[in-house]
């Protein structure tokens, strides 16, 4: 093995790292912003509200991310009304399609994570809020969501890691993320070990960093529950 190839091309990996970080963080933020209201609505007993959100999460959690990305990247070109519309300047870009697919995907998973956490809210907390005279919106904002976030955090940490790993698929539609960088180096120098092992090390480091950050956040969010 000859890692001097990697050292000479380290800047390719760092450009890839930048793309990976942008893809992951933007889609996580967009996904989370939409997931919070969707999760609250998903707990509704009314099937007209609850049903479509269920269908959305069922579809995006039941199909591979790769297929979703292909549907958006290759699929949208099939329709003339999209091609002729203003939106085509976005949908013809691989970068936008990857972001769009990742955001929808993580939004579906996050919605279900938060919904689960909301449904596990201790009944007493809600009752106390009602007794204190809080309106429904105030209750959601002050009591239900903060308590649900605390319970959702460990699963959400997993979702962040899944998204990081899922973002490697962007390399399939020509984006140079970390995996894309490795594929580029491999095809230029025909050195699969060096190229992909380096990518693996990058991903491992980011994964460990995320695990550490989530642990710290869990610790600080559970301050009022600690007894020492």
């Amino acid at each position: 093995m000859d890692f001097s190839i990697i050292l000479e091309n380290l800047n390719v990996y760092f450009d890839g790292l930048q793309n990976t970080l942008i893809l992951v963080s933007v889609s996580l933020i967009v996904g989370l912003i939409f997931a919070i209201p969707l999760a609250v609505l998903r707990t509704s007993k009314n099937i007209v509200i609850n049903g479509p959100i269920w269908a959305f999460t069922y579809f995006f959690r039941g199909t591979p991310l790769l297929v979703q990305m292909f549907l958006i990247y290759y699929g949208t070109g099939q329709f003339d009304f999209i091609k002729d519309s203003f939106f085509w300047i976005f949908f013809k870009e691989a970068y936008f399609c990857a972001l769009f697919a990742f955001s929808l995907n993580t939004c579906a998973y996050t919605t279900e994570i938060i919904r689960g956490a909301i449904e596990n809210t201790p009944h007493g907390e809600v009752e106390a809020a009602k007794a204190a005279g809080m309106s429904m919106l105030l209750r959601i904002r002050r009591i239900i969501l903060p308590s649900a976030f605390r319970r959702a955090l460990p699963s959400y940490g997993n979702e962040i890691i899944f998204m990081l790993h899922g973002s490697s698929l962007a390399s399939v539609i020509t984006i140079i993320d970390i995996t894309g960088a490795a594929r580029k180096i491999n095809s230029t120098y025909y050195s699969p070990y060096e190229a992909f092992l380096t990518a693996a090390v990058f991903y491992l480091c980011i994964t460990f960093l995320i695990i550490w950050l989530v642990k710290r956040l869990e610790y600080s969010w559970s301050g009022h529950l600690r007894r020492d």
């Binding site: 790993h165 899922g166 995996t179 991903y203 460990f208």
Partner: peptide
């Protein structure tokens, strides 16, 4: 800790 795709490649 490593994406499936990277391992597969």
């Amino acid at each position: 800790g490593i994406p499936d795709l990277v391992l597969m490649l």
